[in-house]
Simulated scan of single mutants.
Amino acid sequence: MNAIFLGMACLLAAAAGYWILGRGTPRPAGTWAMGGLLASFGLAFASYAPLFENAVEAVVPHVARLLSNSASLAAATSVLAISFQVNLNQAEARRRIRLRVVLLAASVFGMTVLFTYEQVTHRSPQVYALYLLLFISYLSFAVVDFLRQALLQSKSTRRRSVRIGFRMAAVGCAFALVYAAYKLTVLFSLGLGYQLIPDHSECSSLVAAPCVFSVTSPALAVLLICLGLTLPAVVFPITQARRHRWEVRSFAALGPLWQELSNAMPEIVLSADDTDKEAAGDSDFLLQRRVIDISDGILALRPYRSQRVQDVAQRTSGGGAEGRAAVVEATVVKAALACLHAGQFPNEVAPPSTTDAAARKDLRTDTQWLLQVADAYAHQPDVRVADGGQPELVGA
Rank of each mutant, 00 (worst) to 15 (best):
I4H: 11
I4K: 06
L11I: 14
A14G: 07
A15W: 01
A16Y: 01
G17H: 06
L21K: 05
T25N: 07
A29V: 08
G35K: 00
S40I: 07
F41Q: 12
L51Q: 15
A58Y: 09
V59I: 08
V60D: 12
A74P: 00
A81K: 13
Q90F: 10
F109D: 08
G110F: 08
E118Y: 05
R123P: 03
V127W: 05
L132C: 01
I136K: 02
A142Y: 01
A142S: 14
K155L: 15
R159Y: 08
S161G: 09
G172S: 10
G172Y: 01
L187H: 01
L190C: 04
Y194V: 15
S214Q: 14
V215E: 11
V234W: 01
R245T: 13
F251K: 04
F251N: 06
A253T: 11
W258Q: 12
L261K: 14
A264P: 08
S271G: 09
D284W: 00
I294N: 00
I294C: 07
I298P: 05
A300P: 03
R305T: 03
R308T: 00
Q314T: 11
R315T: 09
A321S: 13
A326Q: 11
E329I: 03
V332R: 14
V333D: 10
A342Y: 13
P351L: 15
S353N: 11
D356H: 12
D362Y: 07
L371N: 03
A376H: 11
G389E: 05
